[in-house]
């Protein structure tokens, strides 16, 4: 096993190469390189302030990295250099979707509308850049019907079909998280970046989330990259874990390898007790499961 070259090295969807991000004197990310495999769930973990969200913002174009390269390759071989693209094009052309740490739904719009906004670009083309749509051409109606079907599919997947006509802001927290993932998936992404999807979820909701994410990996042609603090999620579902501390990569590999890496344990022991406990508990759980 150990001698085998890991899949993310041979067939990466995203290669982060020597990325550095400075804010004035602060180095948030320092010469970071890692690869995310196609069809994998890659987890980016690390203590608070390690620079995980900064890496995400660089990948999705909200920040431009000070140095380095972000290289994305679609399944059909089409390459994209993300650091050179404006944020909306990264989603529209490079097909990278994301969710946010603090949920950013269109709270005054219904669930269905949220999912329709996510399909803006194909619908825009179908409406002839609005002109044909205003004139009432039939092509747009067909495209909209197709979009609504797609939205229904995702509403069913996240178990919110019955609430399709409620405003998104009325949903409970866990459902809002799931809706945000569904909204990102409606853009038909090749890479889905999730910023702490399990934050604030109770154990049952967290379990449902794992199901959803595994389902996405299984049924869609989408690779996942996620930031997570909840170790049970990380260890249970991810294929590949990258650990950051103070903006530098300290470990990279399969979950079981990373779990036993002394530097990772030290990094987590170095932070506050709660997180250490989380790690320890997660390790216990995983080892117990492994023993069984």
């Amino acid at each position: 096993m150990a001698e085998m070259i890991p899949s993310w090295e041979t067939n990466p969807i995203l290669s982060v190469e020597h990325v550095t991000m400075r804010f004035g004197g602060l180095v948030a990310v320092n010469d970071l390189s890692f690869k995310a495999g196609r069809g994998d769930i890659t987890a980016l973990i690390g203590p608070n302030g390690a620079g995980k969200t900064t890496v995400f913002n660089c990948i999705t174009g909200f920040y431009k990295p000070t140095q380095g390269m972000l290289h994305l390759r679609h399944a059909d071989g089409k390459p994209f250099l993300l650091e050179r693209m404006p944020d909306f094009k990264i989603s529209a052309k490079a097909k990278v979707a994301r969710t946010f740490q603090n949920i950013r739904l269109f709270s005054g719009m219904t669930l269905l509308e949220n999912l329709l906004v996510a399909q803006h670009n194909p619908l825009m083309i179908a409406s002839g850049m609005t002109v044909l749509g205003v004139l009432g051409f039939a092509g747009y109606k067909k495209a909209e019907k197709h979009s609504i079907e797609r939205a229904e599919y995702w509403l069913n997947k996240i178990g919110l079909y019955d609430r399709a006509d409620d405003p998104a802001g009325d949903l409970p927290y866990g459902a809002q998280r799931r809706l945000e993932i569904a909204r990102a998936m409606c853009t038909e992404p090749e890479l889905l970046c999730l910023d702490e999807p399990a934050a604030g979820l109770n154990p049952r909701e967290s379990g449902e989330l794992n199901e959803l994410l595994l389902g996405i990996r299984r049924d869609e042609n989408t690779s996942l990259l996620l930031i997570e603090h909840d170790m049970s999620v990380v260890m249970e579902i991810s294929d590949h874990v990258v650990v950051l501390e103070y903006g530098t990569k300290i470990s990279d590999g399969k979950p079981e390898a990373v779990r036993n890496d002394p530097r990772v344990i030290a990094a987590y022991l170095g932070v506050d007790d709660e997180e250490v406990e989380q790690v320890e508990q997660a390790l216990d759980v995983v080892t117990e499961e492994a023993q069984q």
Partner: peptide
Amino acid sequence: VACRSLGI
């Protein structure tokens, strides 16, 4: 911000 993340 959410709009931009959806490719608008």
